[in-house]
């Protein structure tokens, strides 16, 4: 009986510790910037969902490609139809770990994210640096990294190549709240 209680306690402990350390993204913003010859292109997605488990360091995010908003609506249609093929590959995801975050410490911390990024049906290992600012039960996560279009089989037709750089700069800004 003693043994059984111990087991229950052990299991419960694990659940509670991890549950207490779970953060859910309240505000999210993933944007990309591409420096083109004719015009610079930016798009913003503010409908990204994300969970961060500070206890284990696990993090995941999920977004619909169609939620990227462009200044020019026609460009948005082309982005979805021609380059991202978002009917075939509607989502982009990331799952991995955040390394170097100390949940006991308030203020800004330098961290690293390591994991798998899926775009356009292709999954690649990525490694990015960023910051986490802890403010009570809120975490502000920021990161900036480059994505090479060819790594994800995103083919930009020759005829518009001038418009789209072969590499885009992705910026991530999440505000998490502890659950």
């Amino acid at each position: 009986m003693k043994f059984f209680l111990f087991m229950v306690f052990a299991v419960a402990l694990n659940f509670t510790t991890s549950a207490q350390q779970r953060y859910f993204a309240e505000k999210s913003k993933v944007s990309f910037y591409s420096d083109g010859v004719v015009e610079d292109i930016t798009a913003v997605n503010e409908k990204v969902t994300s969970i961060f488990d500070a206890f284990k360091g696990d993090v995941a995010f999920l977004m619909s490609i169609k939620d990227f908003q462009f200044e020019k609506k026609l460009m948005q249609v082309h982005f979805n139809e021609k380059y991202m093929e978002s009917e075939k590959y509607p989502k982009s995801t990331f799952q991995g770990k955040i390394v170097g975050f100390n949940s006991a410490e308030e203020g800004v911390q330098q961290v690293r994210a390591v994991g798998k990024l899926s775009i356009h049906g292709v999954t690649k290992d990525v490694d990015a640096i960023g910051t986490i600012e802890k403010n009570g039960s809120f975490l502000q996560v920021k990161s900036k990294f480059n994505v090479k279009l060819l790594d994800y089989n995103i083919n930009v037709p020759q005829i518009v190549w001038k418009n789209i750089a072969q590499q885009v700069e992705v910026t991530i800004e999440f505000t998490y709240r502890q659950l």
């Binding site: 087991m7 969902t49 284990k56 696990d58």
Partner: peptide, 20 residues
């Protein structure tokens, strides 16, 4: 095993699964 069980059950895939 019991101590580790929640770790396996709460693996990374679940975070993404929850979002899905």
């Amino acid at each position: 095993l019991f101590i580790l069980l929640p770790f396996f059950a709460n693996a990374q895939e679940d975070l993404l699964g929850e979002l899905e």
